[in-house]
Amino acid sequence: MKRRVMCNEDFCIGCRLCEVHCNVKHSKSGDIILAYKYEEEREPSRMAFEEKDYVCGSIVCMNCKDPLCVKACSMGAIEIKEGTVAIDDERCVGCWMCVMVCPFGAIKRGDKKAFKCDHCHDMETPVCVLNCPNKALVYEVD
C-alpha cells in the first residue's frame, strides 16, 4: 500500500485552508475556533505551503518509495507503517538528519522533535484533501 497526497499546482488557489484544517485536526479539541483562539499550545501546520510567482502548492510528506529520511535518521526512529512514513515521537531526538535529506522539504522542525504529515491515519482521507476547496489536493492510495 502506498499513500500520497499530490498537489495539482494548476489548481492550487493559495488559500492555505489545508494548513488551517491540518492544525485543527492535530489540535487538542479538534474545533477550529477553540484550537486557534483558546488552546494555549498549537503545533505548527504539518503542511509546507509554498509559493513562487504564480505557482503555489502544498507539500506534505510524499511517502517516498525508498525514503531517504528512514535511512538518514540517526535514531532509527522513522519507519514505514501501513504505507505511511512515520516518525516515532518517543525516539526522535531532533537531530534533523531527516530535514537534511528530504527532497521535498516535507519534514518540519518542532521544538525538539521532527514532525510531518501523518496522512491523518485515523481517517479515510486526510483533512487537507477533504477541505481543499478546489480539489487541488488529491489523495492517492494504491
Binding site: 488557489i13 493559495g14 488559500c15 492555505r16 485552508l17 488551517v20 477550529i32 475556533i33 486557534y36 483562539k37
Partner: peptide, 12 residues
C-alpha cells in the same frame, strides 16, 4: 470572536 486570523480573506 470567530476570526482565527488565517488570512484566507486577504489571500482570496
Amino acid at each position: 470572536d470567530k476570526c482565527i486570523n488565517c488570512k484566507v480573506c486577504v489571500r482570496q
